[in-house]
Structure formats: structure tokens, C-alpha cells
Amino acid sequence: MSNENELSHRFEINGRDFSNAGRASTSIKEILQEIGIDSSIIVRAAIASYEAEMNVVMYARRAVLTLNVTPEKLHLKLEDEGPGIENIDLAMKEGFSTATDEMREMGFGAGMGLPNIKKNADEFEISSTPGKGTTIKITISLDSTENK
């Protein structure tokens, strides 16, 4: 927050912490509302950060989610420590999920998480090292819907 034109926030997310799941994405939404970001952008950022957050809660040990907003762009970066993803192409397929039965009963594991993140991003990057963790970076452009 030191730079007037740039805002940065960092959130820690813990694996299996279902009771705090959704906190980081709710905070992100509130921050974006406070700084007057267009509501259609906020919805996209909220969906992407929620799915990213839930992936950590369900699969990883811990992660850091960073929000960075410049006058032109909104960036979200998620770096997790966890099992990683063996086959990213497969993980990106709608409907594919490695969720347990317990998670599915809770309404997770629809195989929509990563596709939802990608759909709501203008730029999407994912990299993963099996056994170590996964990093996801997304960018949403603020230009197109800017209200002057």
C-alpha cells in the first residue's frame, strides 16, 4: 500500500481449514469494493479467488494468495505447498476431479474449480511440480469496463 497507485495484499490459507475457507476471497471482495472497482470485475475476482482458495483447503498444505491491483490490472497469485498436479491438461478439463467422496458430498469436487478460474481471467498461468506444489497466476484487465 506504499505506492499510491498500487495496492497489494497477502493472505495465508491453510489446507483442511474448512472453518476459515472463503475468508481470503471475502476479504479480497471487500477490498475491491472499498477501492471502487467495477462490480463485474469484483464478481470475476471473487469467483477466481474462491476456487483457488478452496483448492488449497481441499488439496494443499498451505498457500499464500496475493492480490495486487494497479490502475490497469488486477493480479492474483496463488502459491501452494502441496501434492502438485500430475497432469495439468487433465486437471483443466471440466468435470475432472480428484476429490474424495467426503468432499463430493459437501458439494465440492465438481471438476469446475480450475476451469472457473480460467474462465474469469483475461490471462491465466498455471505451473506445478508434483510433490511440491502449484502456482496459479491470473490477471483481469480493468480497462475494458472502467467507469472513467
Binding site: F18, S25, M106, M112
Partner: peptide
């Protein structure tokens, strides 16, 4: 939950059989 997060609209009333705490964050978001 992913379906609701992706496709519900502001002001919608969500009909579900889920009862666990994570539904609140979805509604809030």
C-alpha cells in the same frame, strides 16, 4: 458449490440440501 459460485446471480435465493458452513461464504461472495 462451484456451480453456485459460477452461475448464481446477485439477489438470488439459493435452494440446496447442503448444510455445512461453507455455504455461507458462497452466499456472501
Amino acid at each position: 458449490l462451484s456451480d453456485v459460485i459460477a452461475n448464481s446471480k446477485e439477489g438470488n435465493l439459493w435452494v440446496t440440501l447442503q448444510t455445512h458452513q461453507n455455504i455461507i461464504a458462497v452466499a456472501k461472495l
